[in-house]
């Protein structure tokens, strides 16, 4: 530590850039070591305030979670990534309910004859419930606010549905893999095509009727198909007919048609 200190005049001159070069270098070397002189360097308080206000804007922003940063990295827009990550939080109750239902389906599958079929009949409807809860006046407490954002409407609906479907499908798939093994190798994903068809159908219908009604309709269609098949064949194992290869082909065609209709409807609007 040095014994001398810069004078007030020298500090003012330094801050204004008026010191000659040797003096400025000397002052800098001294200031780096001397907290007292460092504190004496004058600065415009308004400049400090403005600088801090700008910094606080960035500093106060919550840190992006790992998943969010990953999504941004692979090219998802920042706002969309935040939305995708936050949405499952909004439906935590539904996610929990889904885990409970799937757990029970698993227990049934192991303990009741034909329990596996029950899971398959259930699996296409579970993601549908999530989609039903994703958007709309009756299910979203913040609907009044979200409806006036630029993202509202079909775009928000699609994004939220996506955020709901990913965990839903993952959970269903895990459960399906844990089921007691029967049937062909593709059995664990037999529910996937009907589920996707139902969801796509609901999204398409939601252009004309409220989403909750659209999902109700498609859900009813599925239940109707299930009940009528069982009644027609007079056996509760008849539900398996809904998952045979010909039926799967039908779902694939249906899904392609619905998907095309969805995209066409979007394109026409845009």
């Amino acid at each position: 530590m040095t014994a001398w200190h810069l004078t007030r005049q020298q500090l003012d001159d330094y801050a204004d850039g008026r010191l000659d070069h040797a003096m400025a270098m000397s002052a800098e070397a001294h200031i780096l070591d001397c907290p007292r002189c460092r504190a004496g360097v004058p600065a415009d308080p308004a400049w400090i305030r403005a600088g801090w206000a700008e910094l606080r804007d960035v500093v106060d922003r919550p840190r992006a979670s790992l998943l969010e940063r990953l999504l941004t990295r692979i090219g998802v827009h920042e706002a969309a990534a935040r939305l995708l990550v936050a949405t499952p939080m909004l439906y935590r109750a539904w996610l929990l309910a889904m885990v409970v239902v799937l757990g029970m389906a698993l227990a049934t599958a192991y303990n009741v004859n034909g329990g596996t079929l029950m899971f398959f009949s259930l699996a296409p409807v579970l993601p549908l419930v999530g989609v039903a809860l994703a958007y709309g006046r009756w299910v979203d407490p913040a609907h009044e606010f979200t409806s006036v954002t630029p993202m509202a409407g079909q775009r928000l609906l699609f994004l939220r549905s996506l955020a709901v479907l990913v965990p839903a499908f993952a959970l269903c798939l895990v459960t399906a893999l844990l089921l007691p093994g029967h049937g062909p190798g593709w059995a664990p994903v037999a529910w996937l095509l009907p589920a996707l068809s139902l969801v796509t159908g609901s999204l398409l219908l939601s252009r004309w009727v409220p989403l909750i009604m659209a999902t109700g309709l498609t859900g009813t269609v599925w239940t109707g198909a299930l009940v009528s098949t069982v009644l027609h064949h007079e056996s509760r194992f008849a539900a398996a007919y809904l998952f045979t290869p010909p039926a799967q082909a039908l779902y694939a065609v249906l899904l392609a048609a619905l998907g095309t209709a969805c995209i066409a409807a979007r394109a026409r609007r845009a």
């Binding site: 850039g17 004058p42 910094l55 606080r56």
Partner: peptide
């Protein structure tokens, strides 16, 4: 964040002055 504000108030004046000796454009310095 408050600690950063204290640190900013303490160090921004001399840092700003010293950086201005290196670069004539105040916007770049800021």
């Amino acid at each position: 964040a408050d600690a950063l504000e204290i640190l900013h108030r303490r160090h921004a004046p001399w840092l700003g002055a010293r950086l201005r000796y290196r670069c004539a454009d105040p916007d770049v310095v800021d």
